[in-house]
Nucleic acid binder design. Structure first.
Length: 501
RNA sequence: GGUUUCCUGGCCGAGUGGUUAGGCACAGCUCUGCAAAAGCUGCUACAGCGGUUCGAAUCCGUUGGAAACCUCCA
């Protein structure tokens, strides 16, 4: 195993960046709350999962063996009307609940693939773990931290808070006393002893479709329970990292901690990582209030919010330019700038990878330029090691890129960069762009196409002849026409190159 | 109402008690048949007001503005 660098992670529990120490050296268990599959994913969901994908990739690249668990919520999520979301979707579409879940699960996976995220190690479904959840309810009951009320089982928050001082509220910072002031009328309020209590098993009503038998009633598990049960099953009672969007801090994550404590007597995760929201028009993007833009609308340009289409990787790069803990406001200008930045860094990488490396003279001696480059490389890693600061690492790559361009333009003598340093630059560049940031070269499919390569070489040959004869009319016509179909020509010192934008 | 966070140059966005973030845009120059690309240079900011400090955009207080959570949400 490679030597592990020091890694800092911002832990919601402490409100600080902490040095990361896994429970088992070299191994990491990470659980991330996945989507509820009752409609198409929106961009906000994508940002969270792209953020955790980058985190996952960086942990992997740092040499850890990571078990990354991300669930699919396909039951138990209540709407405002107290109706199960799967069942609601089903009634509208005249489909079986599991058919709805299946359809949107497939859609979700497609989108994750488009964003080039790595699949998690395990992707458990809530409906596949009903037994585990019933078992956990029983454990909590056995410890006297839940009570039965009219066939439903409620978690006794005040009792738990009293017996485990400082635990309830450790994620969200919420104080139990504040929860008394809640005035909201809930359907099942009268069944609860305290407003902060929450259902871990719900007795079914006649309209509920997704129901299971249990020792207490025919019903279904509470929403918060699935994550507790599945994280325990696959990662153990206490694991390393628990992640999710920061809108899940309360009540979801707070209650999750309570349930795990209630069932096992210990905390579920050492580090809680929360990603911030994607904003549209300065407001949180949200399905329920309609303030959304779908990934597809973005990719096709078919949206009132954008002036053009943006490729998936341009969007991913846009996200990478901001820190995962900051809100990110999606704007046309921002996307446009990101798109250009993305194309430029990919182009820089292509140039860098094509630079010849002198195979001799790998003696390890350093020039001043070498030292500057090596320091930059170190900063690039340091950025990601400091709470996954993608923005810093990108800035460093851009600075490294400047050396590449100077070299190509012969503003920097090739002898100033030792072969082994150039080799290292190549590795670092592609490692970050492809392996850690999860970007891919979207022009690859075009560049690699033999047909187009052949055509282009013919066209450039003809244009070259025209230029030799100073026939600028023909030369410019070719360039302009190609430009119109999205191919840009560059007349460099060493011949003509082209790129599809 | 309660809890928390944020306010950076034309735009997007990092960051730290004293030193250039980076990208995009813009202007000039170099290169070029002209462009493009690339390089160089310029534009150099930290909401307002107080305080702590030798020194604060960075710490504290306060005013103003925004957001998130408190209810399903990534």
């Amino acid at each position: 195993m490679t030597e592990l660098r020091a890694l800092k992670i911002y832990n919601t529990l402490s409100g600080k960046k902490e040095e990361f120490h896994p429970i088992t050296p070299g191994y990491i268990g990470m659980y991330v709350c996945g989507p509820t599959v009752y409609s198409d994913v929106h961009l906000g969901n994508c940002r969270t999962f792209c953020s955790f994908d980058t985190i996952y990739r960086h942990l992997l690249h740092s040499g850890y063996k990571v078990r990354y668990v991300r669930n699919i919520t396909d039951v138990g999520h209540l709407t405002d009307e107290g109706e199960d979301r799967m069942a609601k979707g089903a009634k509208v579409a005249q489909l079986e609940p599991m058919e709805v879940a299946q359809r949107y699960t497939v859609g979700f996976h497609d989108m994750m693939r488009i964003f080039n995220t790595l699949p998690p190690s395990i992707e458990p479904r809530a409906t596949g773990h009903i037994l585990e959840q019933i078992e956990m309810v029983q454990q909590i009951l056995d410890r006297g931290l839940a009570y039965l009320s009219n066939g439903s089982v409620y978690f006794d928050v005040p009792k738990f808070a009293t017996e485990n001082e400082g635990v309830y509220g450790s994620v969200s910072g919420r104080i139990l006393e504040d929860l008394y002031t809640e005035t909201r009328e809930l359907k099942s309020q009268e069944e609860k002893r305290h407003p902060a209590d929450f259902a871990i098993w719900m007795k079914a009503r006649p309209q509920d479709l997704m129901i299971w038998n249990s020792p207490w009633s025919i019903g279904f598990p509470g929403w918060h329970l699935e994550c507790s049960a599945m994280s325990t099953k696959y990662l153990g009672k206490t694991f390393d990292i628990h992640g999710g969007g920061n809108d899940l801090k309360f009540p979801h994550h707070e209650n999750e901690v309570a349930q795990n404590h209630g069932a096992c007597g210990c905390k579920p995760a050492n580090y809680w990582v929360h990603t911030n929201m994607l904003l549209l028009n300065g407001k949180k993007m949200s399905k329920s209030d309609g303030n959304t833009i779908s990934p597809t609308e973005l990719f096709t340009g078919n949206s009132e919010h954008t002036s053009k289409a943006y490729s998936p990787m341009a969007v991913r790069f846009f996200m990478l330019q901001a820190h995962y803990r900051s809100t990110l406001d999606i704007t046309d200008d921002g996307l446009m700038a990101a798109e250009k930045g993305f194309l430029k860094i990919m182009e820089t990488n292509r140039i860098l990878q094509s630079l010849p490396v002198d195979p001799r003279d790998f003696d390890g001696s350093e020039t001043d330029t070498d030292r500057s480059i090596l320091a930059l490389i170190q900063d690039t890693f340091a950025g990601m090691d400091d709470d996954f600061n993608t923005a810093i690492s990108i800035a460093c790559l851009n600075e490294l890129g400047s050396y590449v361009h100077k070299l190509v333009n012969q503003q920097l003598d090739a002898s100033q960069i030792s072969p082994w340093v150039l080799e290292r630059m190549k590795t670092v560049f592609s490692t970050f762009i492809f392996d850690i940031f999860g970007l891919k070269d979207e022009s690859d499919s075009v560049q690699d196409s033999g047909t187009i390569e052949g055509l282009m070489s013919l066209i450039l040959d003809i244009r070259g002849q025209a230029r030799d004869q100073k026939d600028w009319t023909t030369s410019d016509k070719i360039r302009d026409t190609l430009s119109a179909v999205g191919i840009t020509l560059k007349d460099g010192k060493d011949g003509v190159s082209w790129a599809k934008l």
